[in-house]
Amino acid sequence: MDVIELAKPLIDGKFSSLDNIERYEILEQLIVAYLDTNEIDKAEKYLKLVKDKIKDEFSSRLQKLYGMIEEAKGNYEKAIEIYNETLKVDEVNEAVHKRLIAVNIANGNRTEAINLLNKYLEVFVSGDEDAWLQLADLYLLENQCQQAAYCIEEVILTNPKNHLYYLRYADIMCCIGRYQIASKYYCKTLDLCNDNIRALYGILYTNQYLLKSKAEDKSTSDETIKALIDLAKEQLAKLYKKSPCEEVVNEFLKQ
């Protein structure tokens, strides 16, 4: 909504005073904002402005906007058609590739989306963290946790200082049942992000499980496991002192 409020006066009013390139960039954002809030007719009205400017030349960006309008209207087939046509001409347009994948997700066609995303990532093998994260989510929805873990490993390789990736990885390891690795990754999250509540809960959870499990499933000593559990409990108790949920959590920690 903010985008619309800010951009509309710029486009309508001082139309000629903006630098050409800037003007059309803002116009593009305005159109997308209208599509988000479902005001499709307004979006189309502004799209006409762009079309008039470009006339007959082929523009991938314009095609992408056409596709997005069809998406907003619910005409997924048409949108897919538009995107495929665009990609024939402009192979390496990442934005259009991603819209194609997005349509398949919105369509409920998850397997196709996974397929396309995999093909995309064969080419764009480095640098696109969002794509790997999206693929991980899709795999999780399909219950293919091992593959999802692979995707998160890819983003860790790209950006090993981001504690959120380690957190995600640990969560997925819990799902697979590899609690020892999960515990280690929760610890790493805590290392990178002090007093991270999710990590503390994670450490507590996984190590309580490990304490009861067989020796072959764990690689740290019972001593360490107990120490970690105590640490987690202590930190959580300390952090929750200022929280309205303190009582409940204290009870929880006693379990």
Binding site: D137, L140, L141, D171, I172, C174, C175, Y201, G202, Y205, C245, E247, V248, V249, E251, F252, Q255
Partner: peptide
């Protein structure tokens, strides 16, 4: 969250349990 994982649900459930008893 976009993908729901069971360990978080479990923790939430345990805390809700305590809340209920109270």
């Amino acid at each position: 969250e976009s993908v729901l994982l069971s360990n978080k649900l479990e923790i939430a459930l345990r805390q809700i349990d305590i809340y209920c008893k109270k």
